[in-house]
């Protein structure tokens, strides 16, 4: 039996998480002042292809150090896709079994990836969405406390702490503390809360801007419309200087532009981040705007919006 300390010592893949590049948007920004720069943090460079590797790695690290995953215990959580893929990828490398509850609306490619990675999947009622999946996971955890470590990414402080420890410091380092605006979407709110908190502390003059879909019915996978959702416990409502609302149509149009004008094939949530970053940048005479781009567009290629003009 391998102990927790031995697992952490040999955590090869987990050490590859983070240190993703900042990519400057060159063409969709051509209408802006020359003194305004907009960057996307390309989180698809993480091992499992999304920003969620950061939270998954920190949740696993803290659980291993606390002895919460031991004696063959399984990590249990709910996910809309990317967090599950991150758990599955890093869990496989650490030989930790993963069980996930995912809503029936999960993207088919994400589901295939989870199955390929050997995860035990439970599908929850599609009408109840990700909050329903979370409820099912909580019930499973309560029924079998000895079988599962229930990670609960929405309330687990390791989620935002991952971004406070890595994403925020990377952005401050890579912009040489010159960023004026930080932009991130609200899903579990871990990225926004953790990185935003670090940036606020290190660059007090920077504005911390969140965005969410403008409607509960939207095509921005991974983002939450907070007014109609269960608010994640880790969300810090005092942190945002502003919360923008982005439409799915804006994000889909931007996804096509980023692919065709910048060579960046990103998912709809990253495209929405670019829309939000441009809204902020268009108000500036000078400044440096950094937005987090959670994943690439590869999982979503069968969506019809790519065929638009």
């Amino acid at each position: 039996m391998i102990g927790a300390s031995q697992l952490l010592e040999r955590r090869g893949l987990i050490d590859q998480v983070g240190n993703t590049p900042l990519i400057r948007l060159e063409h969709v920004t051509s209408h802006l002042s020359d003194a305004v720069q907009v960057f996307g943090k390309a989180e698809w460079h993480n091992p499992s292809g999304s920003v969620k590797d950061r939270a998954a790695a920190e949740i696993l690290r803290q659980a291993l150090e606390a002895g919460a995953i031991r004696d063959g215990r399984t990590l249990l959580d709910s996910s809309s896709g990317n967090m599950g893929i991150a758990y599955a990828t890093l869990g496989a490398a650490l030989r930790i079994p993963i069980r996930l509850v995912v809503p029936g609306t999960i993207n088919p490619v994400s589901k295939q990836l989870l199955q390929a990675l050997g995860v035990e999947l439970e599908i929850s009622d599609p009408l109840e969405g990700s909050d329903g999946a979370r409820q099912v996971a909580a019930e499973l955890a309560a029924q079998h406390p000895d079988r599962y470590f229930y990670a609960d990414q929405y309330s687990n402080p390791a989620n935002w702490q991952a971004h406070y420890r890595t994403t925020g410091p990377e952005i401050v380092r890579d912009t040489q503390a010159r960023l004026t605006h930080f932009v991130a979407g609200l899903g579990t709110t871990g990225t926004f809360t953790g990185a935003g908190r670090w940036i606020k502390e290190q660059v007090p003059g920077a504005s911390i801007v969140a965005f969410q879909p403008n409607s509960p019915l939207n095509g921005l996978e991974g983002l939450k419309h907070l007014p109609t959702s269960r608010i994640p416990e880790i969300f810090d409502p005092t942190l945002p200087d502003e919360i923008l609302e982005i439409t799915t149509e804006q994000a889909h149009a931007m996804a096509r532009r980023l692919a065709r004008e910048e060579g960046l094939l990103v998912g709809a949530s990253a495209a929405a981040a670019a829309v939000a970053a441009l809204i902020v940048a268009e108000r500036l005479e000078s400044g440096t705007v950094v937005a987090v781009f959670p994943d690439s567009g590869l999982k979503y290629l069968d969506e019809s919006f790519w065929r638009g003009p």
């Binding site: 939270a55 993207n107 009408l127 899903g187 991974g222 939450k224």
Partner: peptide, 10 residues
């Protein structure tokens, strides 16, 4: 007839 939203959250 079911109306289904996109998956939200992480």
């Amino acid at each position: 007839l079911m109306i289904l939203p996109s998956v939200a959250g992480g």
